[in-house]
Design a protein around this nucleic acid. Structure first.
Lengths: 221, 221
DNA sequence: AAGTGGTCTAGACCACGCA
DNA sequence: GCGTGGTCTAGACCACTTC
């Protein structure tokens, strides 16, 4: 099956505005409907999404215009959990044990087992982030332990659920200062993330210790 | 003029799901269209927005369900710039002078004048945040200086523009440690925010020094 | 087979900005 | 008065799940 029409229109519009100056008007919704041989409502859906994503902006009764690409909506706080670009995660170690604090956050009983993995994210061989990932062990099939990398791919959980993140200022934990190439006592941001599925059940608990020299957390909205 | 129909439908649905359990299905889009005596597309617009806001979630071919209220989309990083709730801003001082660093960020010449104001946000008489706000002075009409509070209401700029925020870990600046009731050397998060209008022009530069004891930065998305 | 959400159509009216 | 985006209608077909 080909993609939905409105997705094709989005791609086309993105392509067509690539080399246009900021503030240039695009064709009106009625014109676009003719150009793409479709109805105005379909064009409108495409344009609305591009506005929400920051590619375009609308003025009521005036028109739709090309936005500054620098203002494209992005949320690298989420991004760090997702498409890592050139960055490479390296598993440092993992274990299965009782971690009452994590169990509580995951809506488990205090003595339920938790799978805990620690990874170091690097890019161009520079240390970016230390990741602590916690799963309810009962959710992990024994056969999957062999494919741990896949279990740790939290991206798929985020796509079908909700991500709640807290930004905690702290001094770099002593056990990570060498890993991150930071002096003892350097202030860092620890991002405490919980992923819930659609029904509100916690699926994973992830703590990210960011190297402030390498990773700038930036949100555009 | 009364509100748009789909906004009324949104309010109605929000009210009707308030006391429902998480996971309870709501009426199908076709049923809702009958109930509200409108077309399915209008209902669909209302439901789509409620899904985006985290009130509901949809399963294709199955139905639409009540989501966990804890998962309502929110972004208190933006919120701190907006509706302040019970918190109270108090102007500490302001001045107009050359601030080359701020001017650069605001796309001004180095020697252009910048209006700089510093405010302390408190809630229940506890210090939450120190705000440093910078405007291009040429944008501020002289008559407005008398109504400075209104000029400093950055909310109206954000509504019609874009907000880009960087989260910077640092030790509390010595000049603010007393104001925030923090010991020297306490790690904090400084949120560096630039507001652009729709065309990408910088409108204001705001730096927020958050008291980590009082203000937890949390994002749900 | 019946019902659901996802997509799409070909119109329509409105309020507003602009010339 | 014309063109714009914002809203709305009353249908339609599809792929899929559930019974």
């Amino acid at each position: 099956m080909a993609s939905a029409i409105y997705l094709e229109i989005k791609k086309n519009i993105i392509e067509s505005i690539k080399d246009k100056l900021i503030g240039t008007p695009i064709a009106s919704e009625r014109e676009l409907a003719v150009q793409f041989a479709t109805s105005r409502m379909t064009v409108r859906k495409a344009v609305t999404e591009l506005v929400e994503e920051g590619y375009l902006y609308r003025y009521k009764n005036r028109g739709t215009f090309v936005a500054d690409w620098k203002l494209h909506k992005r949320n690298t706080a989420v991004d760090i959990l997702l498409k890592k670009g050139r960055s490479v995660p390296k598993l440092l170690y993992f274990n299965v044990k009782e971690i009452p604090q994590a169990a509580k956050r995951l809506n488990l009983k205090e003595n339920d087992l938790v799978l805990r993995a620690v990874r170091l994210i690097t890019r161009d061989e520079r240390p970016i982030t230390v990741e602590e990932i916690h799963f309810p062990y009962k959710n992990v099939h024994h056969t999957e332990i062999k494919a741990l990398e896949e279990v740790l791919d939290v991206e798929k959980y985020v796509e079908n659920g909700t991500l709640t993140q807290r930004f905690i200022p702290m001094l770099v934990p002593p056990q990570y200062s060498n890993l991150l190439c930071l002096e003892m006592g350097t202030p860092i941001i620890m991002v405490d993330s919980i992923i819930h599925d659609k029904t509100g059940n916690p699926v994973a608990l992830v703590k990210l210790y960011h190297n402030p020299k390498e990773k700038i957390i930036e949100i555009t909205s």
